[in-house]
Design a binder for these strands. Structure first.
Length: 305
DNA sequence: ATCCAGGAACTGT
DNA sequence: ACAGTTCATGGA
């Protein structure tokens, strides 16, 4: 991570092939999103750092990311944690040179990397958040998934009010470990999803799973098996979490309906591709399947194509 | 009304 | 191992 602390703000120095505006466009895709706000060219995100709420204003000037604190006074360690979060959020450890070199020669990807040049996999550094979002998104349309997430955040998350606007942090697993299935059922979560989410929250409070422990396995396949051992987490959810939380560039959720539809529309197919066909396309993307997937997903929210 | 949605567990063979 | 069934709700 490449960052610098200043009196009233911090700066992050991203690698080449990063475009903050592209990432903002992605983050703006959902009108119901509660976990950040997009203003005119900048981003506001509430983070809970060492039990203190820190409201961050994030913008980019001359390829430098600048973060100011609109509310809260983070210590040096807190600032480092904030920098780390943002660094992970925008996947800034990656060098995309190889991906762009591969993609520019690729029939499917070449138009996409031109259109979204500088877009990073916008991740979810928080393991609980990424698991819950994967479970919420299972087998329902995205709009409804966003609605459920909004209810979840507003009912169980913490918030602060700044200049007459409310900002939220994702509910903690400690909180969710204590609620009843019925409370989520009331918000139109299915009984199963409610059980999965509460079960995972409990597993995290008892330290049965943690991001730190999983990271120490140093092997994405092992992490995937550990994730799939959780009730409610199948191959699709595990791949999703590997991509968004663990930065696994080889993650490739072939079962994903959105990805299948992206292939269909980008290739002008009259049906969705089979898993075999998807593996065939991906042979050329070895090691960069997650980026290919993310760019294909990105193309879905573009009504202009 | 019918089918599908950024799936997964459960059941029966 | 593998296919069929159930979950449950919103949108097209």
């Amino acid at each position: 991570m490449n960052w610098k602390n200043h009196d009233s703000y911090i700066e992050l120095y991203p690698p080449k092939e990063f475009d903050f505006e592209q990432c903002l466009d992605f983050l703006a895709r959902d009108a119901q999103e509660m976990l950040h706000k997009i203003k005119d060219g900048y981003l506001i995100k509430l983070l809970k750092i060492d039990e203190e709420m820190i409201l961050c204003k994030i913008e980019a000037e001359h390829k430098v990311i600048k973060v100011e604190f609109l509310s809260g006074k983070p210590s040096y360690e807190g600032r480092e944690e904030i920098a780390k979060y943002i660094w992970e959020w925008f996947d800034l450890d990656q060098n995309l040179e190889e991906f762009y070199s591969i993609a520019s020669e690729d029939k499917i990807l070449s138009p996409l990397v031109k259109r979204y040049y500088g877009l990073r996999i916008v991740g979810m550094p928080d393991l609980f958040e990424s698991l819950v979002w994967a479970i919420i998104g299972q087998q329902i349309n995205l709009n409804f998934a966003y609605t459920l997430k909004k209810r979840f955040v507003q009912d169980f998350g913490e918030n602060i009010v700044f200049e007459n606007e409310t900002y939220w942090v994702f509910p903690s697993y400690d909180k969710i470990a204590q609620i009843e299935v019925e409370e989520l059922r009331n918000h139109q979560f299915t009984t199963r999803k409610a059980e999965y989410i509460i079960g995972i929250a409990k597993a995290m409070t008892t330290n049965e799973i943690s991001k730190e422990a999983l990271l120490n396995q140093y092997d994405f396949e092992k992490i995937k098996q550990s994730l799939m051992a959780l009730r409610g987490v199948g191959a699709w959810s595990a791949d999703y979490v590997l991509m968004k939380c663990f930065h696994d560039n080889s993650s490739y959720p072939v079962g994903d309906v959105g990805l299948q539809n992206a292939f269909k529309s980008n290739l002008g197919l009259d049906r969705k591709p089979t898993a075999e066909e998807m593996y065939e396309y991906a042979k050329a993307w070895k090691g960069w399947e997650a980026y290919a997937t993310f760019y294909l997903w990105r193309s879905l929210s573009d009504k202009t194509t």
